[in-house]
Nucleic acid binder design. Structure first.
Lengths: 209, 209
DNA sequence: CGGACTCTTGAGACTAATCAAACGTCGTGG
DNA sequence: CCACGACGTTTGATTAGTCTCAAGAGTCCG
């Protein structure tokens, strides 16, 4: 594999929009954010990546990156060049199948998000966003006993689910009253996933089912 | 390739939700709709497929279908079993790479839809939905000189973009006033793509860029 | 002709956006 | 140690956009 390792500071771009991507990354530690931006400034956060996730699989064959990928905190990444990945895939069918499997998983995820953005109200959108992150951190073994810190500003959460910052604030206030979260400067703490789940039961069922 | 051919009547299920899918399909003629449904009845139309599109690539390796796929009109499909596709991919690296490329394209599409649903208003959502279909029909060589018939009910359009049926109706009314579309029983006719584009310029730029 | 489905329209309620200001928190430099 | 500035959160008042509920009219098919 001979992967290389690199550190990115908060706010540092990992892949620029429209640029020719040449590497595949795996997050060792830190948080990474993928955005699409419109000419008039509207911004959609397409995905929020946590340790263990892969960056740039989408651009492996398409030749140009569609979104801007940024380190959101100090982030440690392993990288492998596209050429090497494709070489490995050509030699070993299992590698090719892993790539295909991963692409399918990503696609499944996108469809779930479509359903959330299309059908959910503000409370559901934010509750599921936090639950989704909680579940992924959990699978990565990063959830301990206490509250789980999610270092995302309300502005970023809003860009992820298509809500304005003040409305995110008010909605988080409701989720706090219900015991699901605590709100901190620069982030949110998930106190009780069950309380979040209760605020978005039907979508949570769909998410897991 | 030895594909088989089959005809599906309007409303006939092609793949059932949660079922084990065994085949990959290619649409020869007709329209196909993929939906996700929540327990409380809310429904998201995840994608609308036209001739030339592939069905079921997402379930090739994941083992279970995540959405309900239905013929929306009389539809003619070619099918190949998953086993055969994977067999071909194992023999010919190009086949494996085509599958991967296609999965990446689908993923890119999903991300565009995310941006549309997260950032667009009703007019933009519907204008882009119609433009997207127009562009895809165009690429498939199915656009002639006159108006382009899109046989989707307003209800389906609403489920695709997360708007209620009455609001879709009113919004289509605005697009009609602007000369973009004509409204027919059971469908819409795209009269002037440029008028639609003008109603959603920033998102259209993003869509094509 | 009847029935099922689709489109249209209206009034009122509600959700979320907008605009704006104040307040907290943190890092920095005097 | 304090003062400052940048950034993030909170709150309020108002407006815009969309939903809801409901009824009526159009279209197609048997």
């Amino acid at each position: 594999m001979t992967p290389e390792t690199g550190i990115f500071s908060p706010g540092a771009p990992i892949v620029e929009e429209g640029q020719q991507p040449t590497k595949l990354y795996r997050i060792v530690s830190g948080w990474v954010i993928c955005r699409n931006t419109l000419l008039d400034g509207r911004t959609q956060v397409v995905s929020i990546l946590v340790p263990g996730d892969t960056i740039g699989a989408k651009g492996l064959l398409t030749g140009s990156a569609s979104d801007l990928v940024e380190a959101h905190q100090a982030t440690c990444l392993q990288s492998i060049s596209h050429a090497r990945v494709l070489g490995l895939a050509a030699q070993d069918f299992n590698v090719a199948m892993w790539l295909l499997w991963y692409a399918n998983q990503e696609h499944l995820r996108s469809d779930k998000w479509l359903t959330l953005l299309g059908q959910g109200n503000a409370i559901e959108k934010i509750a599921i966003t936090l639950l989704d992150i909680y579940w992924r951190l959990s699978r990565a073994g990063l959830v301990g006993d206490g509250a789980v810190r999610v270092p995302l500003t309300q502005s970023i959460i809003g860009e992820h689910v298509g809500l304005t910052l003040p409305h995110v604030c008010r909605t988080l206030g409701i989720l706090r009253e219900r015991g699901g979260v605590d709100i901190r400067y620069g982030g949110v703490e998930i106190v009780d996933p069950n309380a979040l789940r209760a605020s978005a039961a039907d979508l949570a069922d769909f998410w897991e089912g």
